[in-house]
């Protein structure tokens, strides 16, 4: 469900006199949400910001025929995720060739002086951030977009087997990261 103000903003987008300020209000309110949704899948700040710009520009272009059935926030995040997936497909990112990352990832965590202060959440956050990019993409699609193996395989144009392998690898890296702090 969408709250009142969002519906108002969307309806103001339809009127030439208020369209620009409505678009800016929408942008201010949700730009960072869209960036985070994209960044979870593509850990590249500049690329995430480009994709978020595209999302809002497209809303602007389609403002007269916009049909948002979910909440506006969910709609915008979904649009960002879809664009991120298109980007991955268009750039034919290979999903099998980054095994060398694993050791590198593990050697990062040697600042063990503040073990006490590190709670599980911090360790997990840091470990996700350090996942190999393709592994990170597959993991995020499962974790945050709640896609099935089959859906991830279809969206990334890879095999279900590859999805399974990347998931196994992601969990192993997270486990080792947590283990290292015990």
């Amino acid at each position: 469900m969408t709250d009142n103000t969002d519906r108002n903003i969307i309806s103001l987008l339809n009127e030439p006199s208020s369209a620009e300020s409505a678009a800016e209000a929408l942008f201010k309110k949700y730009y960072s949400d869209v960036c985070y949704a994209v960044y979870r899948i593509i850990p590249d700040v500049a690329r995430s910001e480009d994709i978020a710009q595209e999302v809002f520009l497209e809303i602007w272009r389609k403002k007269d025929t916009l049909n948002i059935k979910t909440s506006v926030k969910a709609y915008l995040k979904r649009a960002g995720v879809n664009k991120a997936l298109n980007y991955i497909r268009a750039n034919k990112v290979k999903f099998e060739d980054d095994d060398s990352y694993e050791m590198q990832t593990l050697s990062i965590r040697d600042h063990s002086s503040d073990i006490e202060a590190q709670d599980l959440q911090n360790i997990v956050d840091e470990a996700i951030e350090s996942l190999p990019p393709k592994c990170r993409t597959v993991f995020s699609l499962s974790r945050f977009e709640e896609l099935s193996y089959k859906e991830i395989a279809e969206k990334l144009d890879i095999s279900v087997k590859t999805v399974e392998n990347q998931i196994g690898k992601a969990l192993k890296i997270l486990r080792l990261a947590v283990e290292a702090y015990k």
């Binding site: 985070y36 960044y39 979870r40 997990v124 956050d125 840091e126 996700i128 951030e129 969990l171 997270l174």
Partner: peptide, 13 residues
């Protein structure tokens, strides 16, 4: 536990 914690992932940016 790790899986559950990962749901609250907050990137460092």
């Amino acid at each position: 536990k790790i899986w559950q914690a990962s749901a609250n992932f907050a990137p460092p940016v």
